[in-house]
Amino acid sequence: MDVGSQVTVLYNSPHQIPLGLLIAQYFYLTGLSAGSFVISVVAILGRKVEYKPLGKIGAILAPLCLILAPMNLLSDMAQPLRFWHLMTYLPGYINFKSPITYGVILLTAYPISATIYAYFVLTGNMKWSKVFAIIGIPLAISVHGYTGFILALGKGRALWNTALMPTLFIVSAMVSGIAMMILIAIVRNMFFMKDKTVEEREKDRQLILGLGKFLGGAIIADLFLLFNDILVLLTSSKEAWETAHLLLWGKFAFEFIGVELFFGSIIPLFLVFYPKTAKTFKWLSIASVLVMIGIYAMRFTVVVGGQSVPLH
């Protein structure tokens, strides 16, 4: 207990958290979509033919997640029936400075392009799928990067107001996207490849195990960014310090240290790099599930935790 100042708040108005779980969920789903789209495009554009099946999975998942994501947004709005106010693209009616406006444009453009892309990938039209892959990549990165901007522009919140936020969001989107791809691929390999030859299945297996390494790399990048972020929080302003306190040993310590860092990053990292566990589907799928939970916890701590430091 600090002796220097004895302050007791006798009266204050209630604090509020405007953006809640639904927004965190929305960020999570756009992250999944962006992540899987990027992996899919890498697979399609890449030279190795064996990656192509992954491309198909990603191509389906990306628009799927993106249809679910705005549902969260709409149900979070106090006036969901006025959603069309966002779409009257006339100067003076919508604010082109607001990240939400970028979001609306992206959320319209990206699912369309992703759907067309998926159509061409599934019908095997390589030429057009490459065209749409190239169109889709910046969109996919922006669609998730902009969510980082949404938070970064909340100037009053120490956890959000950092230039790292968009990058962190994109990297964590990669992490969760890869993890989801791995899971789907494992399911496909185990249940839907019964008619394929043993060699084909083995080739697919190697491919999936290779993805595990990708996952590990992405996790490391994510951890590095998080480390930077926390370090800055700990050493800058008082609010930032309070935020770091909340995350490291305060109210959100379980979600952040426990779920996000330990179960969501450290254990999966170990699982994908430790030779014994890296080679089995069982451990790899466990790692992926943990990563997906971890990223979900990350979205939650960032959105809700970021607002948990009172502003008055």
């Binding site: 405007p18 953006l19 709005m77 959603f83 939400i100 909340g154 009053g156 502003l311």
Partner: peptide, 11 residues
């Protein structure tokens, strides 16, 4: 539209 982004932004 009640998106509450202004509330989250207000310092």
């Amino acid at each position: 539209i009640g998106c509450m982004y202004c509330m989250a932004s207000c310092p």
